[in-house]
Amino acid sequence: MKKTLTANINGIVFHIDEDAYYKLSRYLERIKAHFRHEHGGEEIVAGIEGRIAEMFQERKKSHQQVVNIEDVREVITQLGEPAEMSDDGNESTGRRETSDYSSEDPAPKQLFRDPDNKYIGGVCSGLAAYFNIDPTWVRLLFVLLIFAAGSTILAYIILWIVIPKAITTADRLSMRGERINISNIEKSIREDLRDIKRNLEDLSKKA
């Protein structure tokens, strides 16, 4: 037995399995995020939604009443991920995306100390995240500077005091310059869960 939901897609009502519903709504969320800054973005999303409704209608005629996860998967393969749809010839936006999670405009970045990736206070890794470089280089630079001038240690301590620690998920996203939206928060939480799982596994191995 499966729970079904009803979804209104482009004015047509569909019965849809719960898992299929979430997969589809995440897909639409990615599309919306991708085209948010494009001129006429809403129109693009509306067009795609219309197409999805059409495909589901076709499917309904041929087999069953309820849209399942297979149907959603097929629709996504046919329509493609937002990065594949991008109209690269567009000079007016002219920006490229590396993945469907990052938005077109760089999100405002904030300087934080990175508690997940620290040796002492997370100052170097925070700076590295801010300037988008490998933290090892920043650490190396600090160590070299300590040899050059002992006051670097004092500078580090001041930075430690002055720069806030990234505590919440939102802090960590703006530290990395990622937009605070549902899909990024979800991604970040997934990463956290993976870390916790890994730690637990390590612990159980030691025990």
Partner: peptide, 15 residues
Amino acid sequence: VVEGTVYPLLTRLKN
């Protein structure tokens, strides 16, 4: 290759 390509293109041509 993917159908989704058409929508941004149509919107741009219209704009």
